[in-house]
Amino acid sequence: MEAFIQRRKRKAMSEMNVVPYIDVMLVLLIIFMVAAPLISQGVDVDLPRADAEPLPDDQRQPLVATVDREGNYFLNMGDNQDSPMSAVDLATLVAAHLQLDPETPVVVRGDGQVAYAQVVQLMVLLQRAGAPKVGLMTQPPE
Rank of each mutant, 00 (worst) to 15 (best):
D44F: 09
F74V: 07
Q59M: 12
V108A: 11
L29R: 10
R49H: 12
Q59S: 12
I39P: 01
R10P: 13
I39S: 02
Q127N: 12
N17C: 05
V43M: 06
L26W: 08
L55G: 01
Q118D: 11
K11Y: 09
V108C: 07
Q81Y: 01
M77H: 04
V34K: 04
D44K: 15
D46P: 04
Q113P: 06
Q139K: 14
V88W: 13
I22W: 02
V107A: 15
D82I: 09
P56I: 00
P37A: 00
L125T: 13
D89F: 09
G135I: 11
V94G: 00
Q118G: 02
L55H: 00
P102F: 01
P48Q: 06
P141N: 03
S86E: 09
R49M: 11
V67N: 07
G135C: 14
V24G: 08
M13Q: 13
N76D: 12
A129F: 03
V67T: 11
P102Q: 12
G135F: 15
M33K: 03
Y116I: 06
M85A: 03
D23A: 06
F74K: 07
P84D: 04
Q118L: 03
L55N: 03
V27Y: 04
S86V: 05
N17H: 06
K133S: 12
V119R: 07
M16I: 15
P132W: 14
M77E: 00
N72W: 10
Q118W: 08
P105M: 10
P84K: 07
Q99F: 04
A129D: 05
D68K: 05
R60G: 05
F74T: 05
T138C: 08
L100R: 15
M16R: 08
D58F: 00
V19H: 09
E15Y: 07
E70W: 11
R49L: 12
Q99I: 07
V19D: 11
N76E: 06
A87N: 01
P105S: 07
N76L: 06
D82Q: 04
V119S: 02
L63I: 12
A117G: 09
V134Q: 13
M13G: 14
G78K: 02
K133V: 08
P56Q: 00
M13R: 12
G112T: 03
L136R: 08
D58T: 01
D79L: 12
V24F: 01
